[in-house]
Amino acid sequence: MDLGHKEEELIDVLEDVADVKDLMVFNDDVNTFDHVIDTLIRVCKHSAEQAEQCAYIIHYKGKCSVKKGLLKILKPMKEAICDAGIDARVM
């Protein structure tokens, strides 16, 4: 059994887990609920219900984590959301 190889795989997994980030979307006075919902469905592949729930949280709480994942996956999503005129950041 190659313990060195198993150890390398475990390190890779641990690094991935430690690198999990949140894609946060922030409230504004410009975008409509429908625009935010449509954008979350298109960009994050949310269901209509999930996108609507996130939109309400964004509206009432000021922000919402709409997706968790690795930076390399979330960064293009953040850019697409920002391109739609919605304030988003990976944190």
Score class of each variant (00 low, 15 high):
Cys64Asp: 01
Cys64Gln: 01
Leu71Arg: 10
Gly62Gln: 14
Met24Phe: 06
Leu70Gln: 10
Val43Asn: 02
Asp28Gly: 03
Thr32Met: 13
Asp38Glu: 09
Ser47Met: 11
His35Cys: 05
Val36His: 02
Gly69Ile: 14
Glu15Thr: 09
Phe33Asp: 07
Val17His: 05
Met1Thr: 08
Glu49His: 07
Lys45Tyr: 12
Asn27Gly: 05
Asp12Cys: 12
Leu23Trp: 00
Ile37His: 00
Asp83His: 03
Ile73Gly: 08
Asp38Arg: 02
Ala88Ser: 12
Lys21Phe: 09
Asp22Ala: 07
Asp38Gln: 15
Ala84Thr: 05
Leu3Glu: 13
Ala51Gly: 08
Glu52Thr: 15
His46Gly: 06
Ala18Gln: 14
Lys21Pro: 15
His46Thr: 06
Leu40Tyr: 03
Val66Ser: 02
Ala51Phe: 05
Asp2Ile: 11
His5Met: 09
Ile41Trp: 04
His35Gly: 12
Ile11Tyr: 11
Val30Ile: 15
Leu40Phe: 05
Asp19Ala: 09
His5Ser: 15
Glu8Gln: 14
Gly62Cys: 05
Leu40Asn: 04
Asp12Pro: 09
Gly85Asn: 08
Leu71Glu: 10
Asp28Lys: 00
Val66Phe: 04
Gln53Pro: 09
Leu71Ala: 07
Val36Glu: 01
Leu14Glu: 14
Asp87Val: 14
Asp22Lys: 04
Phe33Ser: 06
Tyr60Pro: 07
His46Lys: 11
Met91Gln: 09
Tyr60Asn: 15
Ala55Leu: 04
Val36Arg: 00
Cys54Ser: 03
Ala80Val: 04
Leu74Gln: 00
Ile81Phe: 01
Ala84Arg: 04
Ile58Ser: 03
Lys67Ile: 07
Cys54Glu: 00
Asp19Trp: 03
Ile86Ser: 00
Asp38Lys: 12
Asp19Val: 10
Leu74Met: 08
Val17Lys: 03
His35Trp: 11
Leu40Gly: 06
Glu7Thr: 12
Ala48Glu: 14
Glu52Cys: 04
Glu52His: 04
Ala80Gly: 10
Val66Glu: 01
Asp29Ala: 01
Asp38Val: 06
Leu71Val: 05
Lys63Ile: 12
Ser47Tyr: 14
Glu8Cys: 03
Ile11Lys: 09
Glu7Arg: 11
Val36Gln: 00
Cys44Leu: 04
Asp83Ile: 04
Glu9Gln: 10
Leu70Ile: 07
Leu70Cys: 12
Val25Lys: 00
Met77Ala: 13
Met91Asn: 12
Ala80Lys: 05
Lys6Ala: 15
